[in-house]
Design a protein around this nucleic acid. Sequence first.
DNA 1: TATGAATGAGACTTCATTCAT
DNA 2: AATGAATGAAGTCTCATTCAT
Lengths: 216, 216, 216, 216
Amino acid sequence: MGAVHSTVHKSCRWHRRKEDRPAEILTAALKTFSVKGFAATKLVEVAKEAGVSKGTLYLYFESKEALFKEVVSEFVLPQIAKAEEHAEQYSGSTKELMFNLVDHWRTHVLETELSGISKMMIAEASNFPDLAHFYLENVIQRTRHFVANLIELGIQRGEFRKCNSQYAARAFLTPMVFSAIWQYSLAPFDESYDINEYLNLSMDIFIRGILKENQG
Amino acid sequence: MGAVHSTVHKSCRWHRRKEDRPAEILTAALKTFSVKGFAATKLVEVAKEAGVSKGTLYLYFESKEALFKEVVSEFVLPQIAKAEEHAEQYSGSTKELMFNLVDHWRTHVLETELSGISKMMIAEASNFPDLAHFYLENVIQRTRHFVANLIELGIQRGEFRKCNSQYAARAFLTPMVFSAIWQYSLAPFDESYDINEYLNLSMDIFIRGILKENQG
Amino acid sequence: MGAVHSTVHKSCRWHRRKEDRPAEILTAALKTFSVKGFAATKLVEVAKEAGVSKGTLYLYFESKEALFKEVVSEFVLPQIAKAEEHAEQYSGSTKELMFNLVDHWRTHVLETELSGISKMMIAEASNFPDLAHFYLENVIQRTRHFVANLIELGIQRGEFRKCNSQYAARAFLTPMVFSAIWQYSLAPFDESYDINEYLNLSMDIFIRGILKENQG
Amino acid sequence: MGAVHSTVHKSCRWHRRKEDRPAEILTAALKTFSVKGFAATKLVEVAKEAGVSKGTLYLYFESKEALFKEVVSEFVLPQIAKAEEHAEQYSGSTKELMFNLVDHWRTHVLETELSGISKMMIAEASNFPDLAHFYLENVIQRTRHFVANLIELGIQRGEFRKCNSQYAARAFLTPMVFSAIWQYSLAPFDESYDINEYLNLSMDIFIRGILKENQG
DNA sequence: TATGAATGAGACTTCATTCAT
DNA sequence: AATGAATGAAGTCTCATTCAT
């Protein structure tokens, strides 16, 4: 009489992610991990935040570690894809594009919980080597490459001075990454810090610093 | 002369060195905390690293938390005092002084384990609010102030363009702090990253970015 | 119907009995605390005695100390309420009532593990001041009052000689409390000690001691 | 060349006589054990109380356990010997002798730290079986015997009614032991308790209870 | 699928005991 | 003999993980 029972495919798991539960859990986990870090986060808290029970977490994720990794990998690729997407739509001076990118990133990343991911990676990289590799290759190097190409373009267009575009890209990205990290570390204690003011001036200095002299 | 009593008890498990212990333990703790973070660090590891037993830690520090706080407070103030000291001895253009400061910091902080403290603070600030306050006031704001004054001086001297010196200071400090953090997070996985190259270009861009146009 | 699956998981380590656990744990704790005292009791022992794991204890009680306090409060108040209850139902001479009370107490307290509580309080009072206060007010003074009233009644009825009923109550209670304490201290080593013989003679002497002379 | 240096004699310091050390330690230990119990007593406290260092304890006593046992054995035998001594010197009615014994015991035991030993034995008997045996044989049974003989004498003299002298002895001793225990447990919290009042009435009732009727 | 009671490995911390000084 | 720094076994408590319901 058990013939009627629909066989359950283990492999279905990945596809069920499309439903709400996993996303809700990941969002809750992002929020908690971002603030407290990996070890100081209790799974009960994540569960409560996600509105499910502790046990449910394990229906979707193998372990705390797996959840952590999933949080990073899941949120990170859209984050960067968005940036690339936006860049491709843009036509105008490289300088303007870069300012524009920062603005876009400011609203779509910095002011969302996505910026917590940066802090998480910084804090836990040495405890999660494979995650660190994944992040480095799929996020950092991809972003560097993307920005380096922009800068290269600016140089070719005669907007920017000649320089090592790889490291210029890093210099450009630093204030962005740094403010994201700051948001989830010392910003809550630092009342005198206006993150936009910081970003604006940093970008202004950067752009001035790589522009051709006569264009200042 | 006195060569008779040169028996060295190196191999013995028992040593009585009340004077040296705290420093040894703090150094070991800095090392371990820097890499693993607060929670992932086991006190046995710190003890082993310091060459003492678990219990000895508690002769000198009240708790794991107290040890962590002590590590930050102990190493951090000399770190910044050195920088100020060095600046005061300097006479020359502001630009040169700032390059010089970076070089000095590079050898005295970045290339030592002291740079681990930055990562620790980033990672654990929200779990140690009082430590965060301490660090913010005694390190970050003090450093900002110090650099802001330098930049102000540069502006008055006509070297730098007019700008908000407070935020320019932050922009100047960002690459330094960032590379320190990087050392203890993703640098070990990032073979293509030459920290000196990064620092040099960042500083070059920064200086160019705040110089008066005609001086580029 | 479904007879095939009648496997009984009696031997299984896993049981879900949220309702019964607290009582089971408290009983186990009473038993262990009574014999060994607070400090010498290991929570693993209590857990094993209760048939649960170490961690389960912490689902129901905040700490070892909290468990100890709960043991006292849970078992002690019913213990005394019973005595009062029994007294109120009684009609007869005060003397007989008091003999009767001792008998009742003998079977309902002395011969059960409840008598261990007395020893616990004696042994740990100075280490748990608030528990001591609680016990003194809610158990000892209440009992003294109850017995003092009985003696007062006996005096008014002309059964007992005039005396300080407060202290007479204490004198009456002493052999009872003492035999309870004895049970959980030296009785196991004292083969020549018949607790009933002791109680009987003590009560006999007490009653004779407070009776009016001509009634001896 | 250092021959000129005057040798410094460490021994110049004033030393307390080393013969006193064990007694000082035992007294300190009695004090601490009495109040806190065996496990809650830290040897550092005992050492501090005795005015010596932790290590010195181990020059005179093998272990914490050995110290505890020694405290009991050392103080206990003189305690009982004194009682016997006093009894032998006495000539008069048994009744008076017994009152007198209580008074003597009150000043020489109850009001000294010796009374702490009773509580210690009650609390720790089951954790120290061999100590319990020692105490039972050398203190309790010896005392019972001593008192039982007195009562027997009183019976033979026609002062006391016929009764089981063994248990009458226990009944007589109970209030004494109980008040000693009380001193080191709940007395500090029990302001309404006058230990002398208690003892007086208890003895009065006891004596009345075993006197021949016509003598009341 | 979902729950949360139950588990137990593991970490911090204490303190009796040891031993170099 | 005396000290107290150093040790490490052992106990409390936490929390990721499991599994009966």
